[in-house]
Design a protein around this nucleic acid. Structure first.
Lengths: 208, 208
DNA sequence: AAAAATACGTACCGATCGGTAACATCGTCA
DNA sequence: TGACGATGTTACCGATCGGTACGTATTTTT
């Protein structure tokens, strides 16, 4: 279970103990929380479970995070970062072609969402778990979704949509619908038609 | 379950106290749980809060429901019933016209989902809160979604879609996306374009 | 090597969680 | 009246919840 020691000794690592435990407790907590929160939900996971599985202790958690809610918010910030990494990678694959960019992301998502064990979007799930507007976790989730909306509308404009805002919002509905459906049905759920439907909607919304 | 209140006083009710408390405890619990579970989420609401707000006591709850999980399942069965009531009312309004039936529902949903305080679909939310496949709440939610999928595919066929299953699934993506987006963004969210997008997608999927 | 700073662990807290035992009370109907 | 079923009352259970007081290692700096 305790793997990952700093492989800095690939070349010229002069003074360094094996450092089996060199990974900072805060990092181990972040990683463990990420896995547990995503798989089981935030409310379902207690801090004891996190620290136990991370191989650290509770005070270590509370030295790095003010509360469980803040840890949840940190998890979502990490998740948000990974999301945009995936998204922007698709964008970079098709320079100047917004439709191809979006369809690239959508095809990847369609595959992921149809594998079982898929649990949807961590950000959306968190917003479902924490409806209170002032909760730190919900705040992170909402900001991310607002940014996504902005990006999708821009992409819709670049696609040449007659009404970019409407198409952008429509694409967001499809994405959120896939997140939800993917975790409801296992494979062979509605999520598998995402790419086809998205393309159909886009084609019906551009040109003319 | 457990019929309610002998409403024998429609005529000739001679001796009857105001009956402020005549409502069965089980029913009061169901109603209270429905409101609280939907608004705040199932995990977020404790049984103490339910019985307190319902004006009953904990043993009364556990005389009618085997566990909190079963109460949650009962809540979802109620929710499911109300959903199909709304849905079938829209169907009945446009006999023989599946597209009009669906758009009728979609227009109503678009309005509801854009009001703030909207919390999405109770069934979908429950599935998010309880990822474990064997949880009673998730079971009810999944069954309902499977039935919805079946219905939407049938409607897509009645619309004359080239590929009914694909269109049906696409419509489900839009619905689920609206449930999620509606509770993320308040009003003026992506949910407000649902009707327009749905119609566009349908038109692009039929005939030819 | 000594001192200052940083990271971590042991043990514990009060509150709340879902759930129950035992008994008193009430209304209804025979 | 008397019996019954449904409800309320009170007190309690063990487990888990999020969170902390306080002392000990370990590093880093001097």
């Amino acid at each position: 279970m305790k793997k990952d020691q700093p492989q800095s000794d690939l070349l010229s690592a002069p003074d360094k103990k094996p450092a089996t435990k060199k990974v900072r407790a805060a990092d181990r907590i972040r990683e463990t929380a990420r896995a547990l929160f995503y798989r089981e939900g935030i409310r379902a996971v207690g801090v004891d479970e996190i620290v136990t599985q991370a191989g650290v202790t509770k005070p270590s958690l509370y030295r790095s995070f003010a509360s469980k809610d803040e840890l949840a918010a940190a998890y979502l910030r990490d998740y948000d970062g990974e999301f945009w990494q995936r998204f922007d990678r698709c964008v970079a694959m098709h320079p100047g072609n917004a439709k191809a960019q979006f369809l690239e992301y959508v095809r990847g998502l369609g595959v992921r969402a149809s594998k079982d064990g898929y649990r949807g979007c961590g950000l959306t799930n968190a917003a479902v778990e924490y409806p209170a507007a002032d909760h730190p976790a919900r705040h992170v989730a909402l900001e991310s979704k607002i940014e996504l909306r902005r990006r999708l509308r821009l992409m819709a404009r670049d696609m040449g949509a007659r009404d970019p805002d409407t198409l952008g919002d429509g694409l967001q509905l499809l994405l959120e619908g896939t997140y939800a459906s993917g975790q409801l049905f296992g494979d062979d759920g509605p999520a598998s038609v995402l790419a086809e439907i998205a393309e159909r909607l886009i084609d019906a919304s551009i040109g003319k």
